[in-house]
Amino acid sequence: MLLDVRGLKKVYEGRQRPVEAVRDLTFGLDVGDLVCLVGPSGCGKTTLLRCMAGLLTPTAGEVRLRDRPVTGPPPGMAVVFQEYGRSLFPWMNVRDNVALPLRNKGVARKPRQDLVAEALAAVGLADAHHAYPWQLSGGMQQRVAIARAVAYQPDVLLMDEPFAAVDAQTRADLEDLIRDLWRKLGVTILFVTHDIDEAVYLGQRVIILSSSPTVVREVLDVDLPDQRDQLTTRSDSRFTELRSHVYAQIQAAKRESTVGSHDAARPAGLAKQVLQ
């Protein structure tokens, strides 16, 4: 197993009382997987991702990458954040943004230039090398962030709701880009999203999370053909079935958390649910 999450638990020490964001998560990724994590909003997806990326220390349990425990950001991991506008260096042009992690890793000049050019070509930005991030549209900025992650040649690529802040058409293009990169380059991808359609369309497997305090509710294999297409796949009856199933699971998760939350651990969560 490439990436292994075992009994992960994260409790935030709040000012009044501790808040249990993630209760007990266990799942794994194999080499070449494209897995989507989907759950109700506020279910601790970002907490989970930050724990996996080594940016946050879990309260209990562990994350292992290639059988080594993750205690800080591991070298074999790249993260694409939702806030594309804040994850690129505005003082560097596109090429330098993609090249910096490679320079830092000690990749020599020539192979570095090749990697950068290949990655930018793969995301469709072959002619934007000298542009600055703020000169690009949101979708293009996120493409740069994806190119940077791909050029880094990580064992695992973690994506934290990367398309939540772009418009619907751009989003469809970027989803196809991810499928494309995954099939061509064979990267292992863990894609976190709150969008059920996106999760089913992209994933080979979908991990459905419960409401916070989070556990794995179901692991669903997506038996759609590898070659996917925005038009035909989304109108496929199997796609609709899978989508409805995930939707029902998430609705059930929300209901259960509303009923079962006189659990003293999360009064704030209850208040939020009631307001919604």
Partner: peptide, 13 residues
């Protein structure tokens, strides 16, 4: 920026 700082951390910069 916090996101930029996280980006640096995750790339080992």
């Amino acid at each position: 920026d916090g996101v930029l700082a996280d980006t640096c951390r995750s790339y080992g910069i």
